[in-house]
Design a protein around this nucleic acid. Structure first.
Lengths: 334, 334
DNA sequence: GTGAAAGCGCTAACAA
DNA sequence: TTGTTAGCGCTTTCAC
C-alpha cells in the first residue's frame, strides 16, 4: 500500500493524498474525508524512508549516554523519552561507555542516521574543563546538528547545556558539616568529569570560607561500587575523617558499610551525605542525606530548548543552570 | 556529498561506487582503492534514507519497555544495546508505560519507523496467561516483523521468548523458609504480570509440597516503593507472618523497614528474600538474600536468536528458559 | 568488471 | 482546490 494505491482508490492524485497526510488546509473537506476513509480502510502508513529522503529528517533524536544501567542516566532517559514521544519524536539510544574513541564513534554512527538533534546525558562528554581540545569533537558535531547536553557544559555554537548547581550543593553539605563542628571532612568521589570538578570546587570553597585547610589526602577517589568503596576506605587505615561528602549515593552507602565494619555510629562518629537522592538513599538505615539535583527539570528544560531550536528560533539561551536541593535525612546532624 | 559526486570524482559510475560501499567483489582492486580514497577524502557517508527506501530496512531494532527508570529494565536495555551495536544495529527506544492502549500505540509507531525487529522487555507485554486475546496485538505485530520477548512468554508464529525460571526461584526460597521452620510465609508482590504469576505459582507449589495451607491473606499486593510497602505492612495489624518472599528488591527492603519500625530482628523474627539481586540488595543491613535471574544471559540469548531469525534461518527455537539462582545473604537463615 | 537506467515512495514547486 | 512532475540518493537489473 503506497501513496499511489491510495490516490487511485480515492480517485485523486498523489499530491492530494500527500496533502491530507500532512494536514494541509488546501483540501476540500469532502476530498479529505474520502482520502482519509480509504487510508483507514487500507491501514495505510506513509513510508518514512521516502519521506525522510525528501525532507532529510525522520523526526528522530539521538540520545547518547555512557551507561544506561546507571540509575541517574536511566532516569534522565526515561524523562527525555516521555517528552520526546509526546512531541512526536522518536529516539535512537546509544550507550557509548566512557572511552573517548567509543564516544566519538557512537556519535559518528548517530550522525550517519541523520538524527535531527543529539542529546548527551552525563558530564563525561564535557571533558576536563582545562583542555578545550578534548571537546572539539562536539563543536564539529554541532556544526551539523544542534547538540544538547544534560549535566555538563561545553562552550560552542549550536551547543545547549543544562546542568545543576553542583558547586552550591557540595558547598552547602560541606558547610553543614563544618557548622556541626566536624574537622576532617572527606570528599568521596568516583570521577574527574565536569560535574565532579564542580562538586570538588564547592567542597573546597566551603573549607576555605571557614578557614579550614584543603587537604589532598581528604580527596578520596574510588569506584562507585558499595563494597569496593567500603574496602578502599577500610584499607586506608591511616586516614582520619569524621564526615563524608560523597558524589554518588553508592559511594555514601559504601561509607555507611565502612562505619558498620569499624563498629562506629552514624551520624555521631561519622556524618555522611550522598548525591542524586536515589532509591539507595532510602534503602539504608539510617537513611541517607542526599542531594536532589532536579534532573527532571534539567530534562524538560532541555526538550523545551530543543523544540525551539529545531523550529528555527534564534536567540535561545545556551546555558541553563538548575538549583540543587539538599534532602536531609538521618546520616547527618544538620 | 552524494554518490554522484563521489562517482564523478573517482571517474566511475554510481553503480561502481555503490558496489564498493556494499563490499561487492565484482570490482577491480584498483578501482576499489580509487573510490575508497575519494570517499575517505570527502568524508562521504551514504544517505540512510535513500538506502532504506531501496532496501526497506535501516538496520534498526525497536526496543520497548514499560519504564526504563526501573533498574531491571535499564540493565536489560544496557546489555541489548551493547550487543546490537556490536552487530551494526541501532536501537529505537520506547517507554510505553503499563497501559494497554499506550503499549499498542507505541508499537504502532515503531512499526511505522520500519524497524527490522521488535524487542519487548518485561512481562507486562505478555498479558495474563488466562486471556489469550490480550496478546493478539503481538501476534498481529509478529505478522509483520519478528518479535522478541525478554522475561515473558507469548505463543505465536514469529514470536521468540526468553525468560527465567521464576517458578523454581520462588519455590526454592519458599522452601528455604519452610526448612527453617517458618510457618507464616508472606508473598509480597507488586504486579499480576506473566512473571508475577509464575513467582506466585512457585510459592504456592512449595507450600503445597510441604503440606502447608495456601492462605489468601498471605498474598500481599502493593506498590514497589520502599516506604509505601512498609506503611502498607504496618497498616495491616492483624496480619501475622514470620517470613517474606518478595518479588522485587524494593519490596523486600520495605519489609526490612517494617521490621525496624516494629523493633523486630532479621532474620530471627522475620526472614526476608528479595528478587533481582539489584544494588539495593547490598545497600541495606543485613544484606538481602535475593534471586539473580541472569538477565544478561536472557539478553544475549535473545540477540543471538534475533540475528539468526533476521538472517532468514528457519527452525529457530521460540522458547528459551534461563535458570535462576538464589543469592544467600544475611536476611535469611538458610 | 563497469555503466545506464529504472525504480523505491514521498514532498513541493509549478501549472491549471 | 487539484494535478503533473521533477527531484531526493541509493540499489539493482540488464547490457556491454
Amino acid at each position: 500500500m503506497n501513496i499511489y494505491d491510495i490516490a487511485k482508490l480515492a480517485g485523486v492524485s498523489i499530491a492530494t493524498v500527500s496533502r491530507v497526510v500532512n494536514g494541509s488546509d488546501k483540501v476540500t473537506e469532502k476530498t479529505r474525508q474520502k482520502v482519509l476513509s480509504v487510508m483507514e480502510e487500507r491501514d495505510y502508513t506513509p513510508n518514512v524512508f521516502a519521506r525522510g529522503l525528501g525532507l532529510d529528517s525522520m523526526k528522530t533524536i539521538g540520545i547518547l549516554c555512557p551507561n544506561i544501567a546507571d540509575v541517574f542516566m536511566a532516569n534522565a532517559i526515561s524523562i527525555l523519552e516521555k517528552n520526546l514521544h509526546q512531541c512526536g519524536y522518536d529516539c535512537i539510544l546509544g550507550c557509548s561507555g566512557y572511552a573517548k574513541e567509543d564516544r566519538e564513534q557512537h556519535i559518528k554512527l548517530l550522525l550517519a542516521k541523520r538524527i535531527d538533534a543529539l542529546i548527551l546525558v552525563g558530564s563525561t562528554y564535557a571533558g576536563r574543563s582545562d583542555d578545550r581540545e578534548e571537546t572539539d569533537y562536539l563543536r564539529e558535531t554541532a556544526a551539523k546538528i544542534p547538540v544538547f547536553m544534560i549535566n555538563g557544559y561545553v562552550d560552542g555554537d549550536n551547543i545547549y547545556c543544562s546542568y545543576c548547581d553542583d558547586f552550591r550543593a557540595t558547598y552547602e553539605v560541606t558547610n553543614g558539616f563544618i557548622r556541626e563542628g566536624r574537622k576532617r571532612i572527606l570528599f568521596l568521589c568516583d570521577s574527574h568529569s565536569f560535574s565532579a570538578k564542580r562538586k570538588l570546587a564547592g567542597y573546597e570553597a566551603a573549607l576555605r570560607d571557614a578557614g579550614y585547610p584543603v587537604c589532598e589526602e581528604l580527596k578520596f577517589f574510588t569506584r562507585n561500587d558499595i563494597h569496593f568503596a567500603r574496602d578502599m576506605l577500610l584499607a586506608s587505615e591511616a586516614l582520619e575523617f569524621d564526615s563524608v561528602v560523597a558524589t554518588e549515593d553508592g559511594l555514601a552507602i559504601g561509607a555507611l558499610k565502612y562505619v558498620l565494619a569499624k563498629g562506629l555510629s552514624v551520624p555521631k562518629d561519622l556524618g555522611v551525605a550522598g548525591y542524586n537522592n536515589s532509591q539507595l538513599s532510602v534503602g539504608c538505615e539510617p537513611e541517607l542525606t542526599s542531594v536532589e539535583n532536579h534532573l527532571e527539570q534539567m530534562c524538560t528544560d532541555t526538550i523545551e530548548c530543543m523544540l525551539r531550536v529545531l523550529q528555527g528560533e534564534t536567540e535561545v539561551a545556551r546555558k541553563n543552570e538548575v538549583r540543587c536541593e539538599v534532602i536531609k535525612r538521618g546520616t547527618t546532624g544538620f
